[in-house]
Design a protein around this nucleic acid. Structure first.
Length: 484
DNA sequence: ATGTGC
């Protein structure tokens, strides 16, 4: 099999290598964790070629990596992981994506499916009323620039200080809900204007709030540590940094194009525009990026508050009594400074994860006490008609993938193709006939997110488990979906 | 993903 003229070789059942070809400017090989049929798909949509392109970037170490949910993206593939040497490497907005720190959060409850079934339509209506959502929608929290700057510097803690959530929530967020190094001066007025009244809104596209039932426990001990048992209700929240992160990305792509020209980088794709991590522009982008990350995590924190409030109203009990604790919150689109071992030597790296999830193994200092011995939880959303998973990071992920794994099912059909081929209202009826309630603002929007538009999440997860970069805890199935 | 082509 060939990718853009280069022969791929299979290293193990779920690991394929594109050997380094210096004549193509590759500084490292490409490695994709995948099976044959999904690889063929990634070659067809040209995402596999993007793995080769990323391998040409200055300072990239070990390999240009991709997860099984790989698909075509802006410059870098979605599902891509690229670690750059923090001293000599570059940072690239295309390696993060437009929706900075778009991510997912899983809440547990003490409720059973029977408890929810009795009041499901009331609960869906309450969520629909109480969770701001949709394209361009503003929320209930509007901040002046000075307060906004505090919010994007402190992240989730700003929300908790304002009564949006519980003190202990912080423990269950990556980096305790705040990325250090946020530089609000690096954020444009335009980004502020787009973002200041969108905090605490779900957005549209693939973002959702989903009510689920735990269908299967794969490992009892780790499921217990996560507070999960069969038949229990969970709530999944998927959202990002809205217009704010989008504008930061747009602003810095322009800056990076200038820097790329100035540095004389010869890149195979102009969408790979980047700047040295240590350059003035690189430092400013990293500071703005941290603001976007903090915004996204705070956004999910506010959404969590309104989800809890909705349950409180319908069940006439406090969210604490309902056991609505956060299991974990993962971000999917970011570039982070992390220390990793390369050939036995500790190195400071800037790890770009675009549509990929941090998956730290057991014992990592960033993990809360209850997960320290089992590894970092990874919430993997599937599609609205299938299922989602809770996974854990492994020691092997630390060695194989800079502590990274998949982020979801991965898109298989483009948005426009999905809209052309699938009717949103027919999809809604079909899902509701299967006991999955749908509340969606837009029917074409629903069609874009149809199960048929996505790869099989179970297959993606099996590959990650087979490659050793994750282990399975539990599988959840949807019973109610709220979308913008 | 997104004030859903600039």
């Amino acid at each position: 099999m060939q990718i853009a003229g280069l022969e791929v070789r299979q290293l193990s059942p779920f690991k394929w290598e594109i050997p380094q070809d210096e004549s193509r400017g590759m500084r490292v090989p490409g490695i994709i964790f995948i099976d044959q049929s999904m690889l063929e798909q990634a070659i067809k949509d040209r995402a596999a070629e993007q793995v080769i392109n990323v391998a040409t970037l200055p300072g990239i170490v070990h390999a240009s990596l991709a997860m099984p949910d790989i698909h075509w993206g802006y410059g870098f593939p979605i599902g891509g992981v690229a670690a750059m040497d923090a001293k000599e490497g570059v940072i690239s907005p295309g390696g993060v994506g437009f929706d900075i720190a778009c991510g997912i959060r899983l809440l547990r409850t003490n409720l059973s499916q029977e408890d929810v079934d009795k009041v499901k339509s009331e609960l869906m209506q309450e969520l629909n009323r109480n969770v701001p959502k949709g394209v361009g929608k503003s929320g209930r929290v509007k901040l002046d620039r000075s307060e906004f700057n505090k919010a994007i510097t402190r992240g989730a803690r700003w929300g908790i200080g304002r009564g949006y959530g519980w003190e202990e929530d912080i423990e269950f967020l990556e980096r305790r809900g705040c990325l250090a190094g946020a530089d609000s001066d690096a954020v444009s007025q335009h980004a502020y204007e787009r973002g200041h009244d969108q905090i605490g809104t779900l957005g549209s596209g693939n973002h959702f709030v989903e009510i689920q039932v735990v269908e299967e426990i794969h490992d009892e001990e780790t499921a217990r540590a996560c507070g999960l048992s069969p038949g229990q209700i969970t709530v999944m929240i998927h959202s990002g940094s809205r217009g704010f992160g989008h504008q930061i990305c747009t602003d810095y792509l322009k800056v990076m194009e200038r820097v790329t020209a100035r540095m004389g980088y010869r890149l195979p794709d102009r969408q790979l525009a980047c700047a040295p991590i240590k350059s003035e522009e690189g430092i400013k982008y990293a500071g703005a990026l941290a603001c976007g990350v903090n915004y996204a995590v705070l956004n999910r924190q506010l959404l969590t508050h309104w989800v809890r409030e909705s349950f409180e109203r319908v069940f006439r009990a406090s969210a604490r009594k309902l056991g609505m604790n956060i299991i974990y919150d993962n971000s999917h689109n970011l570039a982070l400074f992390e220390e990793h071992q390369i050939n036995g030597i500790k190195k400071e790296l800037c790890v770009h994860r675009k549509g990929a999830t941090r998956a730290f193994g057991p014992g990592h200092p960033d993990l809360p006490e209850n997960y320290k011995s089992i590894g970092q939880p990874i919430v993997v959303p599937g599609d609205m008609g299938t299922c989602s998973f809770l996974l854990l990071g492994t020691e092997e992920a630390m060695k194989e993938s800079f502590g990274s794994t998949c982020h979801g099912a991965g898109r298989m059909m483009s948005r426009s193709e999905a809209k052309r081929r699938i009717s949103g209202s027919e999809l809604k009826s079909a899902l509701e006939a299967r006991g999955i309630s749908i509340m969606a603002d837009s029917m074409p929007g629903l069609a874009e997110e149809a199960p048929d538009a996505y790869k099989d999440v179970s297959k993606v997860v099996e590959i990650c488990v087979g490659a050793g970069i994750s282990r399975k805890v539990a599988r959840m199935v949807p019973i109610g979906v709220l979308k913008g």
